[in-house]
């Protein structure tokens, strides 16, 4: 960085600090940091300010390790990245004002502006990139976790499996239901599969369509579907929609479905004496 800029920054450190702290106080609400104690907020600001200054001392154009760690820590405890990027932007705004005050020639001022942009922008960009990467990572891990939970086929008795569905069914999940049904039916040699929709909040035509298609596919691999867990209000809306679920048996509860699955596989439940 230009020597003059560095000199200016070091000379005006106190002035920059006071103005910067004022600015940070002003934007505190935007980062939803009202619940943090005043003291903690001030201390964090101080630390951030110092970290920004170490960038100047070390003359680096990317986040220092200390900055990266600081950012990671803050995000971990629930602060927003925008707190730091705003801190850097406020910092830029203040030093630009100070440069203007320093009565340099226009050319010099412009060169200094340019210098400071080139210094701050990469730091901001890299912080944002890293945090975006972290987010993407988290989201993709959660997606996998969710997928594992989303459409399990559970072999309950010999030749009888249950697929309990809980939550909203979107296109992606509908695909998984189909896949897991078909692979599961073959793997467990199921003859009857109970699809339990007790936990599905809305059965619209798309969900119904997917269920019909899944049941049809199961039939093609030689097994049979029973749709169970149809709540009374869902039964009503299905009728209103005019959807015909007549191709396969439906039962109101898993228990009733299980009884007919046993019958279909020539077994029954008996009470012991």
């Amino acid at each position: 960085m230009d020597k003059l800029v560095i000199q200016l920054l070091n000379e005006s450190r106190e002035r920059i600090y006071t103005r910067w702290m004022d600015e940070m106080e002003r934007v505190r609400d935007e980062h939803r940091l009202q619940s943090i104690t005043d003291r903690a907020y001030e201390e964090t600001n101080q630390e951030l300010f110092e970290i920004i200054y170490t960038h100047i001392e070390q003359n680096v154009h990317k986040p220092t390790d200390r900055m990266t760690e600081f950012a990671e820590h803050l995000m971990k405890i629930g602060w927003r990245l925008s707190y730091i990027t705003q801190g850097l932007q406020n910092f830029r705004r203040i030093i630009l004002a100070i440069i203007l005050d320093a009565n340099q020639s226009n050319e010099k001022v412009f060169a200094m502006y340019d210098e400071i942009d080139r210094w701050i922008d990469p730091i901001v960009n890299q912080l944002i990139n890293e945090s975006a990467k972290n987010w993407e990572n988290t989201v993709s891990i959660q997606k996998v976790a969710l997928q594992e939970l989303s459409a399990p086929l559970i072999p309950v008795f010999e030749n009888i499996s249950v697929m309990p569905l809980i939550g909203t069914i979107d296109t992606e999940r509908a695909k998984l239901i189909m896949e897991n049904l078909l692979t599961g039916v073959i793997k467990h040699r199921s003859q009857v599969v109970l699809i339990d929709i007790t936990g599905v909040p809305v059965v619209d035509t798309m969900v119904a369509h997917h269920i019909i298609q899944a049941a049809e596919a199961v039939r093609l691999v030689g097994a049979q579907c029973i749709l169970v867990g149809i709540r009374p209000e869902i039964a009503q809306t299905i009728v209103n929609l005019g959807i015909d679920l007549g191709q396969f048996p439906t039962k109101s509860t898993l228990f009733k479905g299980m009884k007919s699955a046993l019958e279909l596989t020539k077994r029954q439940m008996i009470e012991l004496e």
């Binding site: 809305v202 619209d204 798309m206 009503q236 209103n240």
Partner: peptide
């Protein structure tokens, strides 16, 4: 009631989709 809630929610689902 619950049945009308389900009807309304389903209708919204259809239109939104």
């Amino acid at each position: 009631g619950t049945v009308d809630q389900a009807r309304i929610t389903t209708a919204i689902s259809e239109l939104a989709r």
